[in-house]
Simulated assay, not measured.
Amino acid sequence: MRFAPLLCGIALVAAVAACTDEPPAASAPSPTAPASTPVWHEPMNYAYVVDRRCETGPSDGIYRVTVRGREVAAIERTDGKIASGEEEIDLPTLGGLLELAQTAADDGGEMTTSADPADGHPVAVSFDVSEGAGERTCFVITEYAVQG
């Protein structure tokens, strides 16, 4: 019976704890994590409009890009301008654009991307492959539409 005093002590503490006048504390509501942007998977067929500009700088061209089978099928300049002093660029798919930005980052350059919170497709991609020269390449993506 050497455990009897110990058991009585535990019973006494439990009885005193149960007889308090204070109601049990309500648990604090747990904070909900903000919804994260979904992971984007490049569809087989889609179209998008891209403006080659950084922040509020001037546009270097606005293009509609059509992708079929994850390959660029058509590029149409839509801003009515004609490239002067430079050749028209070959625009990649959105997946290719993200790869270009990642390659720049892997090579020590800077890269930033923004994604649509609804489906995760890129809405802005910029990168700088030069060291300190500040020759940033930027793309603002709009009118993204998956096609059948």
Score class of each variant (00 low, 15 high):
Glu86Trp: 10
Cys54Ser: 08
Asp51Arg: 08
Trp40Phe: 12
Tyr48Gly: 06
Gly69Phe: 01
Asp79Thr: 07
Arg77Tyr: 02
Glu55Gln: 11
Ile89Lys: 05
Lys81Leu: 12
Pro29Trp: 03
Pro29Gln: 02
Pro31His: 08
Arg68Cys: 01
Ser84Cys: 05
Glu71Ile: 07
Ala83Lys: 04
Ser30Tyr: 09
Thr56Cys: 01
Ala33Leu: 13
Glu87Asp: 10
Val67Met: 01
Arg77Lys: 10
Pro34Ser: 13
Ala35Ser: 13
Ser36Met: 12
Thr78Tyr: 02
Glu76Pro: 00
Gly80His: 05
Ile75Val: 15
Ile89Leu: 14
Ser59Asp: 08
Ala73Asn: 03
Tyr46Ile: 09
Arg52Thr: 04
Ala47Val: 14
Met44Val: 10
Pro58Ser: 14
Asp51Ser: 09
Lys81Arg: 07
Asp60Leu: 15
Glu71Ser: 10
Ala83Thr: 04
Gly69Lys: 09
Ala74Gln: 13
Ile89Gln: 06
Gly61Arg: 07
Pro29Asp: 02
Tyr48Asn: 05
Thr37Asp: 08
Pro31Ile: 06
Ala35Val: 15
Thr37Arg: 11
Asp90Ile: 10
Pro38Thr: 09
Glu86His: 06
Glu55His: 13
Gly69Asn: 12
Ile75Cys: 03
Pro24His: 14
Ala33Tyr: 03
Val67Ile: 01
Gly85Ile: 00
Glu42Gln: 11
Trp40Asn: 05
Glu71Gln: 12
Gly80Tyr: 04
Gly80Ile: 08
Thr66Ile: 07
Gly57His: 09
Ser36Gly: 12
Glu71Thr: 10
Ala35Gln: 13
Pro29Lys: 03
Ile62Asn: 05
Glu55Thr: 07
Ser59His: 04
Tyr63Met: 06
Thr37Gly: 08
Thr32Gly: 10
Glu55Lys: 15
Arg77Trp: 00
Glu55Tyr: 15
Ser36Leu: 11
Arg77Leu: 01
Trp40Cys: 05
Glu55Arg: 15
Ala74Met: 07
Thr56Trp: 08
Ala73Ser: 12
Val49Trp: 05
Arg68Thr: 04
Glu86Tyr: 07
Ser27Trp: 06
Arg70Asp: 11
Ser27His: 13
Ser36His: 11
Val72Gly: 00
Ala35Asn: 09
Ala28Pro: 04
Ala74Phe: 01
Glu76Met: 09
Arg64Thr: 10
Ala73Trp: 11
Ile75Gly: 01
Glu42Ala: 12
Val49Thr: 15
Lys81Gly: 11
Arg53Ile: 04
Ser59Gly: 09
Tyr48Cys: 03
Tyr46Asn: 06
Ile89Asn: 02
Gly61Met: 08
Pro24Gln: 14
Ala47Ser: 13
Glu86Ser: 05
Val50His: 00
Gly85Asn: 03
Val49Ser: 11
Ala33Thr: 11
Tyr63Thr: 11
Pro38Asn: 10
Gly85Pro: 02
Trp40Met: 03
Ala74His: 09
Ile89Trp: 00
Gly57Lys: 08
Val67His: 01
Gly85Gln: 01
Tyr46His: 04
Pro38Glu: 07
Ile89Ser: 07
Val72Glu: 00
Arg77Thr: 02
